[in-house]
Amino acid sequence: MGDLGFAAQLAEDLSAEDLRLVLTVFRTDVQRLSGALGEAARAADPAGFRRAAHGLAGAAGAVGAGLLEQACRRVMAQGGLAPDARMEEMLAEIEAVARDALGDLDAFLARHAALPPRGAAP
């Protein structure tokens, strides 16, 4: 399941309903913030790019999507230093990592749903 080890911890800590809600919100955040990154890249807006990358890093960090979080933090550092350079390239990298993270999440949720609920008799 990729780098989503922390999601297993969340499954322990949260009810199934809350877990599903948090991961749904994460999916929405990824889509929204990826869109914001794309807009900032097209507008050559390094501040907006950095802001969106920061938001995405926070969302990824919350659910333990470590690879996505690290990719975003690299972008935050580089994007602030080189406003015109490589934003499209960095965007592509983030989108790819984000797709992987969401794929991992889907797989995790499917596996988790197949398990008996917490506290259920074996």
Binding site: S15, D29, G58
Partner: peptide, 17 residues
């Protein structure tokens, strides 16, 4: 106090729990 919805929802769920 959190502007990232994922983080906010997670904190809410854990705290309510």
């Amino acid at each position: 106090v959190e502007d990232t919805p994922t983080q906010a929802q997670l904190a809410r769920a854990l705290l309510v729990g």
